[in-house]
Every structure is written in structure tokens, then in C-alpha cells.
Simulated assay, not measured.
Amino acid sequence: MKNALITGINGQDGSYLAELLVEKGYNVYGIMRRKSVVDYGNVEHIKDKIHFIYADMTDVVSLINAMRISQADEVYNLAAQSFVATSWEQPLATAQIDALGVTNMLEAIRTVKPFCRFYQASTSEMFGLVQAIPQCESTPFYPRSPYGVAKLYGHWITKNYRESYGLYACSGILFNHESERRGKEFVTRKITDAVARIKLGVQEYIELGNMDSKRDWGHSKDYVYAMWLMLQQEQADDYVIATNETRTVREFVEIAFSKVGIAVEWSGIGVDEIGRDKATGKEIVKINKDFFRPAEVDILLGNPAKADRELGWERKISFDELVERMVNNDMELVKKEIAYNSL
């Protein structure tokens, strides 16, 4: 029976990964930061199957302690300040967690159990101002946010520890992956939550930023399986995990509304663009220039050929099913909220 240590276990990816590893018979350990109120987040439903350890990515001593307690055979580093907008407001905190935190975890592994296998959650945001379309493992990086820059450090320090110390350390360059468990600060969940509220009559419209941004969207459940596959290989390597399909934010909005029977009709250009309910003429989408990034990332499109070929990985949940799952989940959540508020 293997031991696995997951940082960021109560987030979207951490919860799906924990479910996968529990199902495969692992002893699962999860790192949590101490708070005044204990919050298990997305792993509330399986908290009794997880061994929790209090630690912090900025405190190497606590990570060494976590390694000693867990005696992990596999470490999945999913902890991060992962919201791009926040990285502009908190660039130093983002760097401490997303960059130096990776080094702290690698040092903890090297100190306690150097034969442990390590997975680093890298990101397509490292490509930023893309130098090639689609992006693959050899595409040059050009991050366009403090988040992307910090993640690039984490990516390269992982590669350096692999090559310098012989650690089994690999990075998954994961493109955008969403789910019903995504936080509402992210645009996809913001959209599906608003769609449910507008459909149920408790919200009039949603405000969004750049509608022309193109992203490669998959489902988190498929992507955490790729993480696990990476640590089962004979040699450590880095892999792009993506769908090789791209859609605009506008397309996401249209499909999400279509799942509740609303057709969106557009008028205007740029910040003056308006989305209306085709049946009623009501304004349901407005553009807010405050939601535009200081430096935009216009298109992200990943080529997962290497992962398909070497890992045998392929996505199972289509884009349409992803959106449908998110909308249906938010419809149920908002209905429960309305019912509770009416008591």
C-alpha cells in the first residue's frame, strides 16, 4: 500500500485526486493550513479517509515534518495561489507560495525521502504571450502575470532538482480545467453560477471582461488521472495535458445559457458589447473593463500528443458535458439556496 501526500488537497484538483488515490488503495495524507475554523472544502465528504497534517508551503520545517509523518511514496504539489487576478494584487505572496513553496517541498523530499516521486502542478499560463500555436512541451514560455512567472519558477526548479539531484520530479503543464468544484472567482464557475441565478430569477445579469479570450478547457477529473499516470512511469518527464480544442469566453457563455433554454443575442463591440436573452430582449451579459487583465493572454491551445503517446492518457469528458455538469450543479445549489432563504 503506497502513501501519498497531497498539498492543496481541499481544492478542486486536490479533491478529485484524493478520491482517485483512495479508490486505488493509497494511504492519503493531505496538508492543511491551520485556521481558526477548520474547513475541509471539497474533501468534506471523504475527510475520514484522509490523514491531515498542518503545514504551510512557506515553512520548510513544517513540510519536512509532513514528509516524516507521511513517509510519502508520492507527493502531489497542488497548493498554490491560483487566481491570476489576485496575483496582480498580491505578487509577493504569490511568489512565496507558487515559486519558493515548490523549492521548500523539494528540499523536504530531498531531506527526508529522496526516492519519493514528486508531481508539480505547472500551468498553461506559463506560455502567456504564446510563441507557437498549439503549445507543446518544447514551446518557449512567456508568462504574462505574476502567477505565470511564479509558476514558471516552480516548473524550472522541479526540472533542476530532477537533473541535479536525480529526484523523480516531473511537471504537468495543465491547460484550463474546470468542474463543479471550481471556485466562483474563476470565470467558468462565475458564468455557470450566474446562468443558474438568471434562469431562476434571482439575478438580472452577469458582468465579464474579455469575451474574445480563447482557452483550452477540460474537466479536472480527467486531468488528475494524468497526474497519477505521470508518477507511474519508469522515468520522470514533463507533459502538456490539454484537449487540443479552444473556445472563447463568449462561446462558453452561449453554451452555458443554452443548457437552461436561453439563447444569447449579441450587439455592440468591445466594452460596449451586450448579451441579451433572445426571447425577452433583457440584458443578461455586460462587459466591465475592470475585469480585463493588465496584460492579456489571448489564446491558449495545448497539444497533448506526448501524453497520449507515452502515458496513454485521453480526456473522457467533452467540453459540452463539462459545461452541462457545471450548469446542472449550480442550478441545484441555487434552488437549495432559494428554498433555504424562503423558510
Rank of each mutant, 00 (worst) to 15 (best):
M1R: 10
K2M: 14
N3Y: 00
L5Q: 08
T7S: 14
S15Q: 05
Y16S: 08
A18E: 04
E19A: 12
E19V: 04
L21N: 08
G30T: 08
S36F: 08
V37Q: 13
V37I: 12
D39H: 15
N42Y: 04
H45V: 04
D48Y: 03
H51A: 11
F52V: 08
A55R: 11
D56P: 03
T58I: 12
N65A: 08
N65G: 00
A66I: 04
M67I: 03
M67C: 04
I69E: 14
I69H: 11
I69V: 15
Y76W: 10
Y76V: 04
N77A: 14
A80C: 12
S82W: 01
S82E: 05
V84Y: 05
V84H: 06
V84K: 10
V84G: 05
E89Y: 00
E89A: 10
A93R: 01
I97T: 14
A99L: 03
L100Q: 06
V102P: 00
V102T: 15
T103H: 09
M105W: 01
A108M: 09
T111E: 10
P114H: 06
P114W: 03
C116E: 05
Y119I: 10
Y119V: 11
S122E: 06
T123R: 01
G128S: 13
G128T: 08
I133C: 12
F141H: 02
Y142D: 15
P143K: 15
L152N: 04
H155R: 06
T158P: 08
N160E: 09
Y161K: 09
Y161V: 07
R162D: 14
C170Y: 02
C170Q: 10
I173H: 11
H177P: 00
E178W: 11
S179Q: 07
R181I: 05
R189A: 15
I191M: 06
I191G: 02
T192W: 08
A194W: 06
A194Y: 01
V195G: 02
A196V: 00
R197N: 01
G201V: 07
Q203T: 00
G209F: 09
G209T: 07
D212T: 11
S213A: 12
R215N: 07
D216Q: 09
D216C: 08
H219N: 12
S220A: 15
S220P: 00
Y225C: 04
M227A: 13
L229G: 11
D237A: 13
D238G: 05
Y239M: 11
I241W: 10
E245N: 13
T248N: 10
V249L: 09
F252K: 03
S258Q: 11
K259M: 12
V260A: 14
V260R: 13
V260I: 15
G270T: 02
G281I: 09
G281Y: 09
K282W: 07
E283L: 07
V285W: 03
N288R: 15
A295V: 13
D298W: 11
I299H: 08
I299C: 14
P304Y: 15
P304M: 15
A305V: 06
K306H: 13
R309H: 14
E314L: 02
K316V: 05
I317N: 06
E321G: 01
E324H: 07
R325I: 04
M326D: 13
N328K: 13
N329K: 05
V334F: 01
K336E: 13
S342C: 05
